[in-house]
Amino acid sequence: MFQFNSDDYFHGFSVDEIRTRINSVTCGTNTPFANPAPNVNAGTDYIIPKSTAFVLKGTSTDSNTASYTYTWEEMDSGSAQTGANSIPYLNKPTGPIFRSLNPVNTPVRYFPDFNKVLAGVLTTRWETVSGVGRNLNFMLTARNNNITAPQTGKDAMAITVNSASGPFKVTAPTFGQAAVSGAALNVTWDVANTNQAPVSTANVNIKLSTDGGQTFTTVAANTPNDGSEQITIPSGSTAANAYILVEAVGNIYYTVSPSFVIDYTVAGRNLYNLQLSRSGSRY
């Protein structure tokens, strides 16, 4: 299960090895760059429920970040998981379960890929949520992409997956359910012990997408994490591919509903209740 070609960047592990090697060289003269290395903050550590998607968001306080690119990478060693066990799988006890991806211009990454989450797929050949309690270690690397003075900055954070909570998931609306603009919609989700210690999520935000998951608007902010909330669909929210997203307040995990419809009609079609009978039997 390999890709057809290599990616032209160094993994965070390799960057660390290069830095360690350069710093160990005693011959020659070290000449520092005029500008400092990128400053990045990976944020605090979190405890999340098992079998649940999450998003990592970093920040930088540098004044000019226009040229920066970022990578979020899992830094767990794969030495204990070899052969068939080296690939990502739901109940993998140690080792990496998320592949490295090419640098991008924002310090944000969804785990797994957000389009997969929209499709209800949380495990692929390249990445998976964790279905067991374990630790996940991540590093955010920033590159300044300066040709004459290339530098990187990094920061680490850790996630503890709690086996006593999760999966955190939306139970309504269901796939293909019909909703109406300006009307109420009951949103339900499986709290799955996420409101209990050690996850301790007291409140959630509920968001609506009417463009197939490209953007989301908050329709209920900071509402109790009790598994049920009646929201009002905003007027003019017609959509053939809508989604509800429920995210933890003060944490990084979230869940997305299956696709549903708002104000859905089939143009030029009328539906009839057609009954055919033969010899007294109804077909």
Rank of each mutant, 00 (worst) to 15 (best):
F2A: 04
F2V: 03
S6R: 10
D7S: 13
D7E: 12
Y9R: 05
V15N: 11
T26Y: 03
C27M: 05
G28T: 08
P32A: 01
N35L: 10
P38A: 00
N39I: 07
N41D: 15
T52D: 05
A53N: 09
A53H: 08
F54Y: 15
F54V: 09
F54M: 06
T59N: 07
N64V: 07
T65Q: 05
A66Y: 01
Y68H: 08
Y68T: 07
Y68A: 02
T69F: 04
T69S: 13
T71W: 00
E73V: 08
S77H: 02
G78Q: 05
T82C: 06
G83C: 08
N85L: 11
S86T: 01
S86P: 03
Y89I: 07
L90F: 10
T94F: 14
G95Q: 04
F98E: 08
L101P: 02
L101R: 03
N105R: 09
P107D: 07
R109K: 13
N115I: 00
V117A: 06
L118R: 05
L118Y: 10
L118Q: 10
G120H: 05
G120F: 01
R125K: 05
R125P: 02
R125S: 09
E127A: 12
T128N: 08
V129R: 01
V129Q: 05
V129S: 01
S130N: 02
S130D: 04
S130T: 03
V132I: 13
V132E: 00
N135E: 06
N137C: 04
N137M: 04
M139I: 11
M139W: 01
L140C: 04
A142S: 03
A142Q: 02
R143I: 00
N144M: 00
N144T: 03
N144Y: 04
I147C: 00
G153T: 02
D155K: 06
I159N: 03
T160C: 01
V161G: 05
N162A: 06
N162P: 04
S165F: 11
G166D: 06
K169I: 14
K169N: 15
K169D: 10
T174F: 10
G176S: 15
Q177H: 10
A178E: 15
A178V: 12
S181H: 06
S181C: 09
S181D: 11
L185V: 12
W189G: 14
W189H: 13
D190I: 07
V191F: 11
V191D: 13
A192Q: 13
N195P: 05
P198L: 06
T201W: 08
N203L: 13
N205T: 12
L208H: 08
S209M: 08
T210M: 10
D211I: 08
G212Q: 05
G213W: 07
T218Q: 09
V219G: 00
V219K: 12
N222T: 09
T223M: 02
N225G: 05
N225F: 02
G227S: 10
G227N: 15
I233S: 08
I233T: 14
T238A: 15
A242H: 09
I244Q: 13
E247R: 06
V249M: 00
V249H: 08
Y253T: 03
V256S: 09
S257H: 14
V261S: 14
Y264P: 03
Y264L: 13
T265Q: 11
R269S: 13
L271S: 11
N273R: 02
R278V: 11
R278A: 15
G280V: 09
